[in-house]
Design a protein around this nucleic acid. Structure first.
Lengths: 201, 201
DNA sequence: CGAATACTTGAAATTATTCAAGGGCCGTGG
DNA sequence: CCACGGCCCTTGAATAATTTCAAGTATTCG
């Protein structure tokens, strides 16, 4: 009962305040979910990779899209239109429970992002992001497609992100392997930076 | 199957990272849900009034409290412990659906707050808050108990909030009735301020 | 009534942004 | 295959917004 939809690179999938078309599931590609300010500033809420979903919240809550979505690469999605989705939801208790816990996790992640933005400075945000993304296990981190999207996600300009990464390398906390990969050199130290104490200087 | 819990003013109900005790429903009083930064800075996520709930997200998702909660006034809550709550949830499909749409609305509200903080400056945030709170209908607005909590909610210092309200009154967009109430004089003008255009100077 | 806390206001300080310019990578087209 | 143009990233200096610090007034609670 789902439709397959394909999108070229840079193609707008929906815009803030559009009526919600249903639930999207990414099969291939990359989708940027974001908001725009009056002046043109963009905030990247979420980068959705294959297997991820978006527009679920509006689909479930029955309101218009609270954000915009754009394909960053050639992308294939499954779109589950609103009506059949609601019908299934009304009948399938297991699905309902699954969505509920999924949504709860999403909220927690989102609260975390909010607290990052509100309670940490640039250095702390980047440090915390790196620790969070590495998951504590691997010390190798792959950055999102473009650094400017990461900057926007953390509510920084790309200039500030660049300067911040430089400061972290100069403090010997991380290594910039290539433009897209980072290695954590001193997780302990990073943690203390994330918690607001900058080491020397 | 719920317990009744009472809290004095200033009493901590739970703290960030505590195991979630269950779902709270406020019967009387006022509860502040907030997060603390390393340095002591506080961010007020939510002020819960009678009829409202808190800790639902952690209860549903099965993780530790992502924030702290404190009674701002003598408060009476119903606490639905975790286990019976989960049991009910597993059986009652209607409840599950209700929570799901409730959660979706909560997420939307929260995304809105996030975008306020990220995409608007101090003037825009306050203007948007006033418009949002008035609901477009009544032009009378009752501020939360303390202005500093509103400031924290909008990620401002109380000094900045004070100055911002002053600027709005001096531009004849609002009237400060008493310390706790505001009247919107020029909703049109406020809207354009919220959208980033400051009128004169 | 007195102490504590909240609120306002001004001046100084700080952080991040904006503006500007150069370097590097990549895809297109000659 | 190389040159060109575009976009991303980096870096520096100037700018601007908000915070911090400080002091005084107002309000609230006991």
């Amino acid at each position: 009962m789902a439709q397959i939809r394909t999108f070229d690179r840079r193609r707008l999938i929906f815009q803030q305040d559009d009526p919600c078309p249903g639930l999207f599931i990414v099969g291939e590609g990359l989708v940027k979910v974001y908001n725009l300010a009056a002046g043109g500033k963009e905030h990247v809420l979420h980068l959705v990779e294959p297997g991820g979903t978006f527009a679920e919240v509006a689909a479930i809550g029955g309101f218009d899209c609270p954000a915009s979505a754009e394909a960053m690469e050639p992308t294939i999605c499954a779109l589950l239109p609103l009506e059949p989705f609601k019908r299934v939801l009304a009948e399938d208790h297991g699905l309902c429970l699954g969505l509920l816990t999924g949504m709860a996790k999403w909220v927690r992640h989102f609260v975390g992002l909010m607290e990052d933005i509100v309670l940490r400075d640039a250095l702390g945000r980047v440090a915390h992001y790196l620790l969070d993304t590495s998951g504590g296990r691997s010390d190798q981190i792959a950055l999102p497609a473009m650094k400017k999207d990461l900057a926007s996600h953390l509510n920084l300009t790309s200039e500030t992100l660049s300067r911040t990464l430089r400061r972290l390398t100069e403090s010997d906390l991380i290594d910039l392997l290539d433009g897209r990969h980072i290695r954590i050199k001193d997780a302990e130290g990073l943690r203390s930076v994330a918690d607001g104490m900058f080491p020397e200087s």
